[in-house]
């Protein structure tokens, strides 16, 4: 399996063997992520972190991953302090940065931007989110969280929230198709997963169930994956209120849930999960957020060719 200089654009580029190898590597690197061990794996490597959009978790966990492995971060900094304000396009920016860095971590508001960036340079590009498009490192950390905190092979999972526009959910479903997952989709009618995606999943051997009742969905699942419903999708604020309330996770709702149920959320949350849930054994979203560090350490180390 060759990872060196591999572009990480979409989960569709990764086979089951490749995903397993990344997760196994993350397992080995987790003590370094917790600062229990020291490492020089990325010593001498410079990673450019180009974020054209605001981000807390993704950016900081990438930078933490690089620093824990003793690599160097080259940051674009604020967009308004760079040549972007002079009208430089992304293609030119990428071709300039490739002269400075060994790898490029890119977040950009346009869908397809990471794919285009990868076409412009031989330096490996890691997609850290392209608009409403792909966010593969989020999916890797989601899979890792399931493996660590619940189970991944044959996992019974309910995925709730905005399944129409939430493309990270689509990536997650494609990835879960490698693991014989039993998937139930929970969303109001107006935010259901597009039929083309459901058809693609069917072609990969995954039949998904659909419901709009959260209570029914969580009876017998290992994992409940909750995503944010964006207010701007609803022209009528009352309708947004109705939909978001109908999917809200509360301690009351969880009384009849599987005791081993784990609740995941890519964060930030707004009001999808009541703060009372944070103190139950079901809450897994803050650990999930931490797991972004070992997973990104693994990916960077493999792509830089520093480990095999």
């Amino acid at each position: 399996m060759r990872f060196k200089d591999f572009d990480t654009i979409s989960m569709k580029d990764f086979s089951r063997d490749m995903i397993d190898h990344i997760l196994d590597t993350a397992d080995k690197l987790e003590p370094i992520a917790k600062n229990e061990e020291k490492s020089d794996i990325l010593n001498g490597k410079i990673l450019a972190v180009l974020f054209f959009e605001p981000s807390t978790r993704t950016r900081m966990s990438f930078e933490t991953a690089i620093k824990r492995l003793n690599g160097d971060v080259l940051s674009l900094g604020a967009v308004d302090a760079s040549s972007i304000t002079k009208g430089e396009n992304l293609a030119d920016t990428i071709r300039v940065i490739e002269g400075y860095a060994d790898g490029i971590i890119l977040r950009h508001p346009k869908e397809g931007s990471a794919k285009m960036a990868a076409e412009m340079t031989s330096t490996p590009v890691i997609n850290a989110g392209d608009g409403a498009g792909h966010h593969p490192t989020q999916t890797f950390l989601d899979l890792y969280t399931m493996r660590r905190e619940s189970r991944l092979e044959g996992v019974k999972i309910a995925i709730a929230g905005d399944l129409k526009y939430g493309r990270t959910v689509h990536s997650l479903c494609y990835a879960l198709s490698h693991y014989n997952a039993d998937i139930t989709l929970v969303s109001p009618k107006e935010l259901r997963m597009p039929r083309e995606i459901i058809r693609d999943l069917k072609n990969r051997g995954i039949e998904v169930k659909q419901t709009d009742s959260m209570e029914d969905a969580i009876q017998d699942v290992d994992v409940l994956y909750v995503t944010r419903i964006q207010k701007e999708r609803f022209p009528d604020p009352a309708e947004y209120q109705r939909v978001s309330t109908s999917l809200q996770i509360t301690t009351e709702l969880l009384k009849n849930a599987n005791p081993d149920l784990k609740i995941m959320h890519p964060l930030p949350r707004v009001n999808e999960i009541d703060s009372g849930v944070d103190f139950t054994s079901h809450a897994c979203y803050f650990k999930q957020s931490f797991y972004g560090v070992p997973v990104r350490m693994a990916l960077l180390s493999l792509i830089m060719g520093c480990i095999e």
Binding site: N89, L90, A91, P109, K110, E111, S113, E119, A132
Partner: peptide, 13 residues
């Protein structure tokens, strides 16, 4: 048709 697609911007593609 996606106005937010990278092909609908000032990029050389």
């Amino acid at each position: 048709v996606n106005p937010n697609c990278i092909t609908n911007s000032n990029e050389p593609i």
